[in-house]
Design a protein around this nucleic acid. Sequence first.
DNA 1: TTCGGTGCAAATACTTTGCACCCTT
DNA 2: AAGGGTGCAAAGTATTTGCACCGAA
Lengths: 149, 149
Amino acid sequence: MTKDERLRWFEATLEQAGMRRTLPRRVLLRLIAASERPLSAQDIYEQTAEEINLVTIYRTLNELTRLELLIRTEFGEGFYRYEPAPGPSDTEHHHHVVCDNCGTIADFEGCMVDAMLEQTHLPDNFQVDSHTLTLHGTCGRCLAQTATK
Amino acid sequence: MTKDERLRWFEATLEQAGMRRTLPRRVLLRLIAASERPLSAQDIYEQTAEEINLVTIYRTLNELTRLELLIRTEFGEGFYRYEPAPGPSDTEHHHHVVCDNCGTIADFEGCMVDAMLEQTHLPDNFQVDSHTLTLHGTCGRCLAQTATK
DNA sequence: TTCGGTGCAAATACTTTGCACCCTT
DNA sequence: AAGGGTGCAAAGTATTTGCACCGAA
């Protein structure tokens, strides 16, 4: 899905939900759709030059998460980050690697958890709707620096 | 690893780190080692009948996590939960299923992420030290209740 | 005795809520 | 015009920090 397709999907979903097309919502959606990595409320606040109220940002993020347009994840930093949800027609999803040294968060593709779950015994009759998988470690850049010193 | 072995490992690690064997630390370690599921600071505070200061609990949890005796995880509730780390000799680890309906958290065994990673392309030369995997969905109990209504 | 650890009070960080005004529909 | 949405101020949680006293080694 391209960024444009994503934006169209976002806005169509807002309309379907009977939600108004306001400036803060459009700005947020555009920022998040364009971002390489998950953004925090604070990130968005700064990227909008603080022109959109932080409270509005929090409220909007909650709404968009409720509509399943965004996914909320905590990476051990003490706050949440948000990124676009995989589109309804997308079969692919991704997860993240977090460098515990420099804090960088990057995507990685090729999740095989769904296949893995078919061979896994789950408690009770638990019905899985989604999953989060995050790899922690050290990024190549930090490894190289450590080796040099 | 039995609960007793775990406790011994905990206390030996404290000693190695040159940390004193104090009441709050022993109480916390015992509580967490005995718990079926990850505990929050508040959980611990309540289970100690509020006899150990919340601040001390936070400080102790941080220390024990730094020593890698505990693992800290966020399950989307807005706060962290702590559970014993797999012992140094343990090859097995587990992850969790979270019922988004009733909030119950349960363990599940048989993680195949390590095997999966061998076939996965990671960004850069990222070196993976650990991973977290959490399944979200609906537990059997909640499914049954919904079906009945 | 010494110095790490604890408890209390206060501060900080993130997020939510109440309410009046604004602007999309 | 009407009602959802926004901004401001204030409140609510979760967690951390400063400092004096206490107690394990």
